[in-house]
Nucleic acid binder design. Structure first.
Lengths: 250, 250
DNA sequence: CCATCGACCCCCATTGAATGGGAAATCCTG
DNA sequence: CAGGATTTCCCATTCAATGGGGGTCGATGG
């Protein structure tokens, strides 16, 4: 009978509910969501029901629930991510058909690299990046470029925090990282050992809009191959994407 | 002093707020949102603030607000739209480089065709479809394919409602529409005069998953050209996408 | 220089939407 | 068919959300 109120807004709770979904977990039951989002079962069920009613979630064949098309639509139409992606896509395709490896586009989001787009090549090896996936800034070539051009406050925060290793190639020494970042600002690109795989090399360049760096374009190469052609292709694509952005400017 | 409560859930209101954004209106002030979403100004400001705090919205340089990257991320990771798009994209690229015209992928959503992806070719003409944009089912080649394979209830509802014309090529006669839909089910594809432009032809084929049609793949051709090659390229791509979906099955 | 307008942002009394415990109904599963 | 998990329903409680009012700030213009 005594109801201990939660003390948090519905919006926060809805975000927590949506955060329980992932690439590995695309469908869930209401109870699973409740457990994962730390909500009382009856509240979770009611919230899920409301979200289904507004099209944010969709029920599948029976019982379980998944992210709805309407959410996808709301998030994309009018999103700046979409504008950037649309400007970049044709040029990413060109890079990908020239280099024949994975090509990806990432932005800085909440102190991590968020991947907006990824084109994969059938011949190319495995790749941990996914669309809408994240990687730490210090542990991906895209992330390094974004970090190099991020505001100094963020940079120092990342340098101060422990640099988690994702594999043999990950930079974990702050001093080395500092030098690498300076090198990126000087040369305009980065060629880094693939932090995760260990058998690959990441190559990335910045994309600017209105002066500041807003995204990074990258490819993953087999360790053996020469990165020079990739650097050239990426730089060229970046210039064209920046032109496109200027033309599309609102 | 007297507060007339709204009588609707926060979730509904948030959806209304998000719906005020569009491709033409990517940044707004809190007051604009309030007006458009029919919310009292003080409520609108507070809601916007909460949404910014949770990363759903982002403030730009000063004052104004736009859809946040975090919303994009929440909507995409784990979304079925993403899985379909990822499976289709490489094959869409192949179609597009063969046919050299606009190529698009659409699904059925709330009795309209919702476009998940669009590849455009620089040489190709204008095209009203956009990613995250919609068109009526009877007024686009993709929509016709989706409608032809939709459940009979929906089909009859569309046939009963007035068929709004978007241009000279739009099918507005229910009897004709019925015959066209039957033809699509028989032949497995549609070649329809571009409903909007009038100078183009739409060609579309269905994509199936687990037996039922879940999407449509289409291209827009100049009225003059022969659709046979396009039909072949699309059908081929559809088969490959269906294979991919089977392989990716969860 | 002051008036006007619009956007923004507090304050705060009011209240109904949201809450969550309980319990019953339903679905699995061994 | 028993026992656990999941979902649905109910409802008294209450606090998060509400929105009117009013004050601040900045831009426009007469």
């Amino acid at each position: 009978m005594a109801n201990s109120r939660s003390g948090e807004s519905v919006i926060e709770r809805v975000v927590r509910v949506l955060e329980t979904f992932s690439a590995e977990r695309t469908v869930q039951t209401a109870s699973e969501i409740g457990r994962r989002a730390q909500l009382p079962s009856s509240t979770a069920h009611r919230l899920v029901e409301e979200l289904v009613a507004s099209g944010i979630l969709e029920r599948d064949e029976e019982q379980r629930v998944r992210l709805g098309m309407h959410l996808w639509e709301l998030a994309l139409r009018g999103s700046t991510a979409l504008r950037l992606r649309q400007a970049a896509l044709p040029h990413m395709e060109r890079v990908q058909s020239a280099i024949r490896e994975h090509t990806q586009l990432a932005v800085l989001e909440q102190e991590e690299a968020l991947f907006l787009e990824r084109l994969s090549h059938p011949d190319a090896g495995a790749n941990i990046t996914r669309v809408a996936g994240r990687l730490p800034l210090h542990a991906s070539s895209s992330g390094l470029v974004l970090l190099a051009h991020a505001d100094p406050g963020l940079r120092e925060r990342v340098l101060a925090a422990p640099l988690r290793s994702l594999g043999p190639g990950t930079i974990t020494d702050p001093q080395l990282l500092r030098r690498v970042l300076a090198g990126i600002r000087r040369s305009g690109h980065v060629v880094a050992p693939g932090s995760v795989e260990g058998v690959s090399t990441g190559v990335a360049v910045p994309i600017r809009d209105a002066g500041s760096v807003i995204a990074a374009l990258s490819v993953v190469l087999p360790r053996a191959s020469d990165p020079a052609a990739a650097v050239r292709a990426l730089s060229d694509a970046a210039v064209r994407i920046e032109e496109e952005l200027r033309a599309t400017r609102v």
